[in-house]
Design a protein around this nucleic acid. Structure first.
Length: 284
DNA sequence: CACCATGTTCCTTG
DNA sequence: CCAAGGAACATGGT
């Protein structure tokens, strides 16, 4: 489920539910999901801690708490990888097969489930240091963004996936932002002029904001059972069926007509990943 | 059976 | 040093 908007919506749901909760017990059912780090150190640091809350940075979740011993760590990083989910279940509920880590609160249990094990939890916060600006904050300035683009010959799609350039875009929203700004994903970044770069910058912000807005209108399937709309674990939309169905303009739509001009959406592979775009609306 | 998949990191090659 | 490609991680959907 993980690009910036999905993590943001998850955090907004989860923060009020974990804030003020005391960690009674921690079960690491899959040690590889604590990475880097060991099960023993992880459990020792979390047990007895009082959660302050959870927030988002790029695609990461940052949990912070008051540890039971002042020498213990007070923050944890979470990443959902490709298929990770985090949710709360009533205490004592049956766990899904791929529940990797379970944290017990008073009446509920936090579950980190991840079939593919690309996601992780860790007490090591250092990955945050390498991240570029948050796209929805004032740190994401159009001038800085333009400067980075102008000195790179990499295809713009690849640049948008680079978390040091802007933090939080993934394959879906990078492609959607390029569609919205009318740019081919193959364009060498340095060949995009100031005007088009400004349009791209604005498209990145708009695409992310709209996705968060859409996600916020849905009811989370808090049980974690629903595979939801196949990409994320949102449950049913509240009176916004069509918005969900038409959520993407290009992602996953190879062969289907462009919503603007009707040209079949084209699929190419860049750096081993699919890029979808309209060859009429998105020019080189 | 085949192919594809929202992410990151590491390694090799140019 | 930079950029690109492939592999690895391991499973599930179509």
């Amino acid at each position: 489920m993980p690009e910036l908007p999905e993590v943001e919506v998850l955090v907004r749901h989860m923060d009020p539910l974990v804030r003020g909760q005391e960690i009674q017990a921690v079960t690491v059912r899959r040690e590889k999901s604590i990475r880097p780090g060991s099960r023993a150190a992880f459990v020792r640091n979390l047990r007895g801690a009082m959660l302050h809350g959870v927030r988002r940075r790029a695609k990461y979740l940052v949990f912070d708490w008051q540890p039971r011993n002042k020498d213990f760590r007070r923050r944890m990083l979470g990443h959902l990888g490709m298929t990770g989910r985090m949710y709360l279940l009533p205490g004592g509920s049956a766990l899904p097969r791929h529940a990797a880590v379970v944290i017990q609160f008073q009446a509920t249990q936090f579950v980190f489930e991840d079939p593919r094990y690309f996601g992780r939890l860790s007490l090591d916060l250092s990955p945050l240091e390498k991240l570029g600006p948050e796209p929805l904050s004032a740190d994401f300035g159009v001038e800085d963004f333009a400067r980075v683009c102008r000195r790179s010959m990499r295809p713009i799609k690849n640049l948008l996936l680079d978390q040091t350039v802007v933090a939080g875009l993934g394959n879906i929203y990078a492609g959607e932002a390029l569609f919205r700004s009318g740019l081919s994903p193959r364009l060498p970044a340095a060949r995009i002029g100031g005007r088009r770069l400004r349009r791209l910058h604005a498209a990145i912000v708009a695409v992310l904001e709209e996705a968060i807005e859409l996600g916020s209108t849905m009811v989370l399937d808090w049980s974690g059972k629903d595979s939801g709309n196949r990409l994320f674990y949102y449950g049913e939309p509240r009176g916004a069926e069509s918005a969900v169905a038409e959520r993407f303009h290009v992602y996953g739509r190879a062969g289907q007509p462009c919503r603007v001009c009707g040209t079949p959406i084209h699929r190419i592979v860049q750096s081993g990943r699919s890029s979808f775009y309209c060859r009429t609306c998105q020019r080189a």
